[in-house]
Design a binder for these strands. Structure first.
Lengths: 108, 108
DNA sequence: CGGAATCCCCTTTGATACTG
DNA sequence: CAGTATCAAAGGGGATTCCG
């Protein structure tokens, strides 16, 4: 299907690679599966990530329409991140990958 | 399933991320779907990759049992790369991802 | 609270040259 | 043919500091 059986493999899914790439991206996405969360919630939930890296990655994911960022003007400010429909599909794919990876690690 | 609906998301599929990560890894794997290929074939097939990066990545994929490297002693030397069973499963997953990515890019 | 700015580090990539 | 050696560049990550 698509270009994969052709002679050259110009990958149309570079978008996916860009989205999954990086140490934290998939973890962030999976953390939002059960519903929207705030910045500090994500920060606490994802063990070991720095605020800067979390912020950077959230921006990238927002630009790619994987999640939405909603600001509730208040003091203190509240910002909520939520998966888009596409982001949810994306999360499902990551879970499928996990199924494979689980068996894979069993083999090793 | 697994840990993804738990509170913390320590990813058991880091192995997958490590395998898919990098600019060329998936392209290399897909290039081998239709059967084993030699180093120079891959080099020509994958547009823009340098010999060093191709070599580095092939080694990593071999270490992770995604592909096998077979040397046929001859002059000039011949080396053949071939997906393992696990590597083939991996390639199928990448193709599935592509299906999603294809629709995703259509939306954008 | 939710970041942005800065600086350093490390890994990966890229370009070039060389070899059994 | 199938690489390796070497070095420079680029990108992402980590720690710290500052801000509305």
């Amino acid at each position: 299907m698509f270009l994969f059986h052709a002679t050259k493999y110009e990958c149309p899914f570079d978008c996916f690679i860009n989205m999954i790439k990086g140490k934290w991206r998939t973890t962030i996405i999976l953390s939002l599966i059960n519903g929207p969360k705030r910045f500090s919630q994500l920060h606490r939930l994802i063990n070991g990530i720095s605020a800067k890296v979390l912020s950077d990655n959230l921006q990238i994911l927002e630009e790619n329409h994987i999640l939405t960022r909603t600001v509730y003007p208040a003091i203190p400010p509240t910002v909520e991140y939520c998966l888009t429909e596409q982001g949810t599909e994306f999360a499902n794919i990551i879970e499928d990958i996990n199924t494979w990876a689980y068996h894979y690690t069993k083999i090793d």
